[in-house]
Design a protein around this nucleic acid. Structure first.
Lengths: 156, 156
DNA sequence: TAAAATTATTAGGCTTACCTAATTATATTA
DNA sequence: TAATATAATTAGGTAAGCCTAATAATTTTA
């Protein structure tokens, strides 16, 4: 299994390949906020574990297995970020927190979080009414005043 | 600031004091799944940082500052656990995941998660209707069939 | 209260993931 | 293509948090 840190490297490589078309030592170093020698060292570990193709003095690519892991981590990241944004956390902070939390959730929690995001996104109006209520609650510290409104589900 | 690991120790000490009335080396070791020498070492660090009162060969107690940190961590833990349980994650897994996630969330996310839990707990019927919808969705993979039901808010 | 059992600490090591400084390889430009 | 600049690697070290084995303190029991 990949450690938390190795997962971070895989994700950074995955994103770099998608965004830049390549993943080089200095790029990953700067993306992760570490120095180049740390990246060289981790590239070597990732290669030994069969996650990346790495030849010295060349950029790296992901193996099938590496891509699978990276994609999984990346998806978990996106879902945690989405969830935090639902909670009115700023996109920047949501992204930063997702980076850390993505390594801490069990498979069971990941599955349920995925379902939760699916659920919210499946809700008829795109944005469920209870979410609007939460937004109000988040801002005012109490539930919105009861309107006696019965005209739900037909869009408002 | 306390590292992730020191926070875990503080929390374990806090819980042990609440549950057993004391916090001794072997107790904390067994609670955290580490060996006794690791605990001795960490007790020393926590003492140096002013979080606990520690004299060799005696159990430890929390200082004011240590208790504050421990209580904060413990509250975050409880809220993450509650949230995961809302998502239908089993209590055991929710507890385990909360242990890890509790150290990864920013203040901003913690505040919003607290609001979310407050919101759900403030909802009229104790358990909001959308939550029941989510439970259905979680089990069946789709939204519950529309019932044309308009008799909301007055209890069902 | 002395011997045995328990509990805690010290000593010495390991691994992970970082770092700086020095070196080597590649790429660019005169 | 030789000199320079850039990029990557190697060498050697650090800190955190864990470990085992050995030792020391405390508590229990005969």
């Amino acid at each position: 299994m990949a450690t938390q840190s190795l997962e971070d490297y895989l994700e950074a490589i995955y994103n770099s390949l998608n965004r830049r078309g390549h993943a080089k030592t200095n790029e990953i170093a700067s993306d992760l906020g570490v120095k180049a020698p740390s990246v060289t060292e981790m590239f070597d570990k990732l290669r030994k574990k069969g996650f990346i193709n790495y030849e010295k003095y060349e950029g790296v690519t992901l193996t099938k297995r590496g891509r699978e892991v990276a994609k999984d981590v990346s998806e978990v990241h996106e879902n945690i970020k989405k969830f935090l944004e639902l909670l009115q956390v700023s996109p920047e902070q949501a992204d930063e927190d997702a980076c850390k939390v993505e390594h801490s959730l069990s498979e069971e929690s990941i599955v349920q979080l995925n379902k939760f995001i699916d659920f919210v996104e499946s809700c008829p109006e795109g944005e469920a009414r209870w979410l609007k209520h939460f937004d109000y609650f988040s801002e005012h510290g109490e539930l919105p005043p009861a309107t006696g409104d019965k005209s739900h589900e037909q869009g408002e």
